[in-house]
Design a binder for these strands. Structure first.
Lengths: 200, 200
DNA sequence: TCACTTATCTAACGGTTGGTAGGAAACTCA
DNA sequence: TGAGTTTCCTACCAACCGTTAGATAAGTGA
């Protein structure tokens, strides 16, 4: 097997560099010149290995979800709802302020609003955020009959509430808010979790 | 006075159109062609009237803060902290889902992350968000000796908490969350407001 | 060694970006 | 009417955008 000239760079390492650039500059703001420079390869090599800019972003996004964004899936596997929400909030506070990565969350700041050319990437990120929220909703839904959330809780509302706080923390981090400050937001959220079921 | 050929377009109306485009596509994603088309003027007219793209954005941003974003300052003037927070949350839910405007908040999605050319715009938006948060902090600070917030409350923490939720709602709106759904987030936040002072 | 395959590079592609020169048009004032 | 002032539009600029053609280099299998 393995015919032809062997690749002279590590695809995964290059992808990690691309991820860093997309994370910091967003899909639109990251130029091919930025990307190739960070990845240490030339443009034809990039196109041969990754397709085009859009495919490269999607691959970097997959890597993000499995790597720095992996805490979301990990949190969902916790045994109790309190543990799920606790991990979600605290791990998010850490993840969006990790000094080894750009501040914030790729799924939020990758293409929150953009020109026509990036529209499909924006849609992809919207879909990913929606999926994460839906996973959380399902986890909450399962907890209600188990008695792990108050009877009468609306799983979808609670999932949106937590998602909004996580996304707000990401925006805060992009604005320079520190890890300690974000942890206090997590703490305040947990101090009143779950919000009491509406009397209506 | 008023010498020379009179301007054939309404500067404020043109600025409103520019605002719409920036709001929907972000600073980077909005091209001069997008802008001139929406504003109904040619490029030289735009440059003569507004300077350049960056100045145009700043003027559109001012108009945003005084117009669709005016609810923030209005909320701060409410007599009690509960009224301040109530108005902030509910007016935000309405503002970021106003059918007459793009979904979301210009101060969040105008340039959350971007390329080098837009860096100063990103900084400007960060500063604006920080200022809004600081205004809220001051309002909270004033309320503590008045007994309108529990003794021992940390005004800065509370301001960050509310700001994060508002920004999270903006991201949610950009993702298609409806007004009714956002109002439930506001409701849940208020049901547990203010979060009890930490026992630490 | 020679054919085949794949990766590498330089150099360029057409299109779009933000921004302008230069002249015609439309107004005020004398 | 004519000088002065400002806006208008057409056409253009250099620089950059994402993308690729085409030649060369480096490996495998026979």
């Amino acid at each position: 097997m393995a015919m032809g000239r062997p690749r002279q760079f590590d695809v995964d390492k290059a992808l990690d560099q691309a991820l860093q650039v997309f994370w910091r500059k967003g899909y639109e703001g990251a130029s091919m010149a930025d990307l190739t420079e960070a990845m240490g390869i030339t443009k034809p090599s990039l196109y041969a290995a990754f397709g085009n800019k859009e495919e490269l972003f999607r691959k970097a996004l997959d890597r993000y979800v499995d790597g720095p964004g992996g805490y979301v899936q990990a949190a969902l596997a916790k045994p109790t709802i309190r543990a799920v929400v606790e991990h979600l909030l605290y791990e998010a506070a850490d993840a969006v302020t990790d000094p080894d990565h750009p501040a914030g969350c790729l799924a939020v700041q990758g293409a929150l609003s953009c020109g026509d050319a990036a529209e499909s990437i924006k849609q992809e990120l919207m879909a990913r955020r929606a999926t994460g929220e839906d996973d959380l909703r399902k986890r909450f839904e399962r907890a209600i009959p188990e008695g792990d959330l108050p009877a009468g809780s609306d799983a979808a509302d609670l999932a949106r509430y937590i998602s909004a706080i996580l996304q707000g923390m990401a925006v805060q981090a992009a604005g320079g808010t520190t890890r300690e400050q974000l942890r206090k937001i997590a703490e305040m959220t947990l101090r009143t979790w779950p919000p009491p079921v509406s009397a209506v």
